[in-house]
């Protein structure tokens, strides 16, 4: 019985060791990215197979873009807060709310324009194929991300017939 138990435990130990080893090795690169200074950019480098020179250029573009992005974030939050207050105190769509909604729409348009310009610049700094892939992905994630909702309201083929 003792021998069987030893073999049984040895097998389990081998299985656990193999699992841990392979899991550790397989996730090592992603762990390294997560523990880095700029994990998102490091991920971008890996995902779009960027060379060091391309990555340096993209990091530069990213660093230049961030302060503008943060400023727009602040504007959006201020506008949202104002709208929240107005909606809490008014039971109808007042001219002030209307004006704020228009202002928010303008901010959104400006924001998306600057964002798209940044994405195009970043994509140009990538190898052509990766640049195209990046643009498709990033547009879907940002300016086109609301389309899921619109699609839900589209009539289906069955409804047409």
């Amino acid at each position: 019985m003792k021998r069987s138990l030893i073999i049984l435990l040895l097998g389990l130990l081998a299985g656990v060791a193999a699992f841990s080893g392979f899991y550790y090795v397989c996730t090592a690169s992603h762990r390294e990215i997560l523990n880095g200074a700029q994990p998102e950019l490091a991920w971008l480098k890996r995902e779009f197979r960027l060379a060091d020179k391309e990555f340096a250029r993209i990091s530069q573009l990213h660093a230049a873009y961030l302060p503008q992005c943060q400023e727009r974030c602040r504007i959006i939050e201020t506008q949202d807060e104002r709208l929240r207050q107005l909606l809490a105190t008014n039971a109808a769509v007042t001219p002030e709310i209307e004006s704020l909604l228009a202002e928010r729409a303008r901010t959104r348009a400006d924001c998306e324009t600057v964002m798209l310009q940044h994405f195009l610049e970043v994509s140009r700094a990538m190898p052509p194929e990766q640049g195209r892939r990046y643009l498709v992905w990033v547009k879907e994630q940002t300016v086109l991300s609301g389309q899921g909702m619109e699609k839900r309201h589209q009539p289906t083929d069955e409804q047409h017939h």
Binding site: I33, L34, P39, E40, L41, A42, W43, L44, E47, H62, Y65, L66, C69, Q70, R72, C73, I76, E77, D80, R108, C111, M115, H118, F119, V138, Q141, T142, S145
Partner: peptide, 16 residues
């Protein structure tokens, strides 16, 4: 997660 992090870092609406 990292992809979403990147998108949040460049899209003010998602960050907000």
């Amino acid at each position: 997660v990292l992809g979403s992090g990147y998108v949040r870092s460049v899209d003010p609406y998602q960050a907000a």
